Simulated assay, not measured.
Amino acid sequence: MASPSTAATPQPAAKPAPPAPILEARSLVKRYPNGDVTAVDNVSLSIKPGEYLSIMGPSGSGKSTLLNLLGGLDTPTSGEVLFQGTPYSSFPSLDQLRATHLGYVFQSFHLLPTLTALENIQVPMFEGPRSAADRQAAAWELLKLVHMEHRARHSPLQLSVGERQRVAIARSLANDPQVLLADEPTGNLDSKNGSEVLDLFDKIHQQHGVTLVVITHGGEVADRAQRLLTYRDGRVVGDERR
């Protein structure tokens, strides 16, 4: 009589490792000694690729300073920021990092008044290898994405505030960034234009897989994010995943 099978018991498949953070802050501090102000007080956090993160807190809490540190626009007093595991201090040029991997949307738009909407979108592309024809074609596609192609030849002064923010969003995507950082992007907009801008962020996140980090002091932005950090007095006091 044959002996029973001695085959090994099947083992459960190993769980895949979680993705490495695309942005990471380690013990980040930003202190302004002249005013004895600590805007960022020992903040550590990690942001996954494709995440939609909102940082919410009252005005003056230091959340914009934190965003500037994450984006390499400011230098920490201590601690470090890493992009895909590499500390910012190890990059030969943060200008190159910002030009190729990070996009920015500012509350005050920062569009160049002497350029048209189409030309403003092309400004970040000047650092890259694209030809003039390629830059213009890419800018047209971005204008279509934000529904502003009919205003391509208008200067910022000829645009409404909502239209300026749409152009600014298109410009932030000019170099196909992996991370989009937005500082109070609806702060200067009425409720209708603000909702339309947030709809654009939803579309960009869902269709393009861009990692979004949005600073806000209002609930509507936070309600759309997958993850909400509550920020107060230079510290993260809450971290909620939706």
Rank of each mutant, 00 (worst) to 15 (best):
Y88D: 02
Q165C: 09
N120W: 04
H147F: 14
R166M: 00
H154K: 08
A174V: 09
L82T: 04
Y88Q: 07
V105C: 06
P129T: 05
R130V: 08
T75K: 11
F106D: 03
S93K: 08
Q107G: 07
L142Y: 01
Q84P: 08
S90D: 13
R151K: 15
G71W: 04
D95E: 07
A174C: 10
E149A: 12
L69M: 02
K144W: 11
A133M: 05
H101A: 08
S160D: 13
N120K: 01
I169A: 01
T100R: 14
L97D: 12
M125G: 02
M148G: 10
A137N: 07
G85A: 15
E80K: 05
Q136M: 10
Q96F: 04
L82D: 03
L94Y: 02
L82V: 07
R135F: 04
T116M: 09
G71N: 14
T86I: 15
T75P: 00
E149M: 01
G79E: 08
Q165T: 10
L143W: 00
I121P: 15
F126Y: 11
V105G: 07
Q178K: 14
M148Y: 05
T86W: 00
R151C: 14
L102V: 09
Q178N: 08
I169V: 15
K144S: 12
S172D: 02
R130L: 15
Q96N: 14
P113A: 14
L73N: 02
L142H: 02
P124R: 02
F126W: 10
Q122S: 12
E149S: 06
S172M: 09
H110E: 13
L94C: 07
S160I: 00
Y104K: 06
T114S: 14
A133L: 11
M125D: 02
E127N: 12
L115C: 03
E80S: 14
L173Q: 00
Q136N: 13
T100I: 12
D74W: 11
S160C: 12
H154L: 15
H150E: 15
L159D: 09
A168C: 03
T75A: 07
E119Y: 15
L70I: 10
P156T: 09
R98M: 06
